[in-house]
Design a protein around this nucleic acid. Sequence first.
DNA 1: CCTACCGATCGGTAGG
DNA 2: CCTACCGATCGGTAGG
Lengths: 202, 202
Amino acid sequence: MSPRKSAAEARRTRERIVGRSVAIASVDGLEGLTLGRLAGDLEMSKAGVLGHFGTKEALQLAALTEATAIYTRLVWEPAADLPAGLVRLRAVCEHWVDYLETARDAFPGGCLFTTASVEFDAKRGPLHDAVRRLQLRWRRVLLADLTTAVTKGELPADTDPEQLCFELVGLYLGLNQSIQLFGDARAAARARRALDRLLPPA
Amino acid sequence: MSPRKSAAEARRTRERIVGRSVAIASVDGLEGLTLGRLAGDLEMSKAGVLGHFGTKEALQLAALTEATAIYTRLVWEPAADLPAGLVRLRAVCEHWVDYLETARDAFPGGCLFTTASVEFDAKRGPLHDAVRRLQLRWRRVLLADLTTAVTKGELPADTDPEQLCFELVGLYLGLNQSIQLFGDARAAARARRALDRLLPPA
DNA sequence: CCTACCGATCGGTAGG
DNA sequence: CCTACCGATCGGTAGG
């Protein structure tokens, strides 16, 4: 019998659970998460795992939140202080490619947002809503810098920001597939080449 | 107790099972298929369902095979008699967009290949291998017409067919996301516009 | 293609 | 955070 732990220890345990959940969900999807597997991996009881979240759905949402934090830290924050518009946009997109290439510690099965987006795109419920909201937020961030870049004259005046945003997202999804399904080491270079064409340096 | 049926009836039953499986997998993934749910939907016993395939994995592979047949019929065959190169390539890509827009009867949750590709990209086993092989075949078909188009002078001589193929696949994945996750009715027009840029009419 | 069953595992609860 | 459960469901088998 393990005694009740301090609040700090409980927080650490929670972080361990969430981290492991992100890794599992990256490979098997958020629906592939099970309390039994988590308990086994972390050498705790199922009830011990569940106690931190209450329901499996809350655990899945926590994993999605953690994935967002990782993504923000690796992709967005390093570019946050750059000037709005093309400069920041290009930096974000480059971090994006790096992230897909290298974030395999946290996401051994690839970007959790991409996995979750496909997994829940046709299902209703809180997870669908959360995934949709996160993807929408991300598209809006891209769109804002795209619009600024056009306003500033960094992109041609006849550029359609929504069209370009659509194409950037496609690039990202294609890169994720090339890396994950085919292990294609040249894919990142192709994505960068396509970026150079879509977002020509001013 | 239902008596044993004739071979023709058995075949029809098998087709019903596979068709329903494709629709379910389109929404919930091939791992979301369960014998119990299929049995309920089709008003048969679980053993009756399983008897046609032997194992759940064989049923999943059968669903993937059927999805391939639908895809081939809608996207590839209508363009098969066109001249190789840019003309056929453009026709295939246009069918491709139409398919994502309209094939929601067979695939209520969107393209099963895209779903399955993300679902199994990081898992090992026969389903991973089958998904990978099908995606590879499809990329090779695109690549062949791209190469022919360059040889014929229908695309600029400095075109990199693999680069263009990579970008076309990304377009497709982005379109699937826009339709499925966001229900964006303008996405198909955006995909066509991007196609016009990537594959300019000769 | 059915009934009747198998062991395993699912998410979750009670109580400490 | 644990043990000890719960009913439901999983894939699959035996036998007809």
